[in-house]
Amino acid sequence: MFHNRGTTWNNPNQTMYGGILYAMADSAMSLACEAAGKPVVTLDLAMNYLAPAWADTCIRAVATLIHQGRTTMVGLCDFYDDRDRYLAHGRGTFFVTDKNEV
């Protein structure tokens, strides 16, 4: 799980800039791959933004793996605020690198 709080990442609408959630999704899913014992690099990542994240809201990212292949992994990442509102959904595909290359 990742957490982020504050107004530093707000856009002019005073909601969290979507790129922050994108970066959090990439990190959360990459860490899920690492926890499964496979170092990865990102091949593809897509986001669906469902509700705004407001200033001073704690954001929770929950990453799960839906495919753990020899050369690729696929993860999902869902975002919730501190009122448990569903904010965004991400899906990423990752290339498994050799542990000796990392």
Rank of each mutant, 00 (worst) to 15 (best):
L65V: 00
M1V: 14
E101K: 15
R60C: 11
L31C: 11
A53W: 04
I20W: 12
N10H: 10
T72H: 07
L31A: 13
D82T: 00
L31R: 13
D56F: 12
L65E: 03
T64E: 13
A28T: 07
L87F: 00
I66Y: 10
M16E: 03
D98Q: 09
K38V: 08
R91Q: 09
I20Q: 13
I59T: 00
A88M: 03
T8L: 14
A23G: 06
L31P: 00
M47N: 07
Q68S: 13
Y49C: 02
M47K: 07
H89M: 05
P52E: 03
C58Q: 15
V102N: 10
A46N: 15
Q68H: 11
L87T: 04
Y49A: 02
M47D: 02
L50I: 01
M24Y: 07
N11L: 05
L76G: 04
I20A: 13
D84G: 12
M16R: 03
A36Y: 02
A55S: 10
I66Q: 07
E101G: 11
T72Y: 01
E101A: 15
T57W: 05
Y49L: 06
G6C: 08
A88T: 00
S30Q: 04
T64I: 11
T15I: 07
I20K: 14
Y49Q: 01
Y49S: 01
G75Q: 01
E101M: 14
T71S: 12
N48K: 14
A23E: 06
K99I: 07
M16C: 05
T42M: 07
R60T: 13
T7N: 15
M47T: 01
G6A: 08
G69L: 02
C77P: 08
D44G: 08
V102Y: 10
F94I: 01
L43A: 15
L76A: 03
V62L: 15
Y86S: 12
